[in-house]
C-alpha cells in the first residue's frame, strides 16, 4: 500500500501554490502542518483528484488519481463545504453513500454506525441548516468514512470541534490508522503531536521537512532557551535570535527563543515541543 506523489506542482498564474512535491505515504497517520497559504489545501485537492496538477503524477499502487478506481478507495473532507439545505443528517449521508456507489441496504447501516461514532445519533433526523459549525464538521468527517476508504484525506478536520469531540476524533483516527493511509492538515499543533506518526511541514508551496516527531524536533533540539530580561535586552535579543514566545511580566520580559549557545546570563535550556518548531519556521517575528 503506497501512495506515491511524484514531483507534483500547481501553478496559479504566476503564483506557485505547490512546488515539485514528492512524497511516499504508507499506512499510518500523517499530519500536514503549514501557515495560511502554504499550499496544504492545494496539495490535498490534487491528491483527491479534484484538482489537476500543473505537472507531476499521483498514484496509489499504480492507480492514477484521475481514475474511478482511485476515487473508490478515497475518503475526502474538504476544508470548506456546503450542504443541500433540505437534507437532514441521515439524508446527507445516504446521498453521499449513493455517490460512492454504496447500495442502499449497506448505506443505511453504515450511516447510522458513523453517526454514532461522531456523536450525532440524536441529530440524525434534524435538518443540517440547524446544525452548529462543529456538528457540520463532524458530519463531514462521517461522510468521508462511509466507503471504508483506504486513503483518508481530511483538510482541517478538527476546525470548530470542542475539546471533547477533538479527543474523540483523535481516538477515532488512531483506531483506524493500522489499515489506512490517513493525511490530515491542521493548525492545531497538539492534534498532530498526539495522533500523527509522521509530520509533514509545508512552507510557501514546498515540503520543507518530513519525519517522526523526534526526527523533526531534532532541528531545534537543545536549542530552545527561556529567560527573563529587561526591555532593552529583550529588544537586542529579538534582533539576534528567532523568538518563540514573548510575554510581559511586571517590569521584565519573558522570552522563549532559539539559539545555538546560551543567549544571555540566566537563560535556561528547555525541552523543545512541536509548537516551537512550528513557530520557528512560520513565525514572522524573526
Amino acid at each position: 500500500m503506497e501512495l506515491c506523489i511524484d514531483r507534483v506542482s500547481k501553478i496559479y498564474g504566476n503564483k506557485i501554490a505547490c512546488d515539485r512535491i514528492s512524497l511516499s505515504l504508507h499506512k499510518g497517520v500523517y499530519g500536514l502542518l503549514g501557515a495560511n497559504g502554504a499550499g496544504k489545501t492545494t496539495l490535498m485537492r490534487m491528491m483527491c483528484g479534484v484538482l489537476c496538477p500543473t505537472s507531476g503524477t499521483i498514484t496509489f499502487d499504480g492507480i492514477d488519481v484521475g481514475k474511478e478506481e482511485y476515487r473508490d478507495l478515497l475518503g475526502y473532507l474538504p476544508q470548506n463545504f456546503g450542504y443541500y439545505p433540505e437534507f437532514c443528517a441521515m439524508d446527507f449521508l445516504l446521498y453521499m453513500a449513493a455517490l460512492k456507489g454504496i447500495p442502499k441496504v449497506h448505506a443505511k447501516e453504515k450511516a447510522s454506525e458513523l453517526l454514532e461514532l461522531v456523536s450525532l445519533k440524536n441529530e440524525a433526523k434534524k435538518k443540517i441548516r440547524t446544525f452548529s459549525g462543529g456538528m457540520k464538521q463532524r458530519l463531514g468527517i462521517a461522510q468521508a468514512m462511509l466507503n471504508n476508504p483506504k486513503i483518508l484525506i481530511l483538510d482541517e478536520p478538527t476546525a470548530g470541534l470542542d475539546p471533547k469531540e477533538r479527543i474523540r476524533f483523535r481516538n477515532l483516527i488512531s483506531s483506524m490508522s493500522a489499515e489506512k493511509i490517513i493525511l490530515l492538515s491542521t493548525h492545531i499543533v497538539s492534534d498532530v503531536e498526539y495522533i500523527a506518526d509522521k509530520i509533514l511541514l509545508m512552507k510557501a508551496g514546498q515540503m520543507i521537512h518530513q519525519g517522526t516527531l523526534d526526527e523533526i524536533l531534532s532541528v531545534i533540539k537543545e536549542k530552545v532557551w527561556e529567560c527573563r530580561v529587561e526591555k532593552n535586552k529583550a529588544d537586542e535579543l529579538s534582533e539576534k535570535y528567532p523568538i518563540l514566545n514573548f510575554r510581559n511580566e511586571d517590569e521584565d520580559i519573558f522570552l522563549r527563543l532559539v539559539s545555538e549557545e546560551k543567549p544571555c546570563e540566566g537563560a535556561n535550556r528547555t525541552e523543545a515541543v512541536l509548537e516551537d518548531l512550528y513557530l520557528y519556521y512560520f513565525n514572522e517575528l524573526h
Binding site: 483527491c48 479534484v50 473508490d72 475518503g75 474538504p78 453521499m96 449513493a98 460512492k100 461522510q143 466507503n147
Partner: peptide
Amino acid sequence: EMEAGCLF
C-alpha cells in the same frame, strides 16, 4: 468539491 471526490 465533496461530490467530486466520490466514486461517481
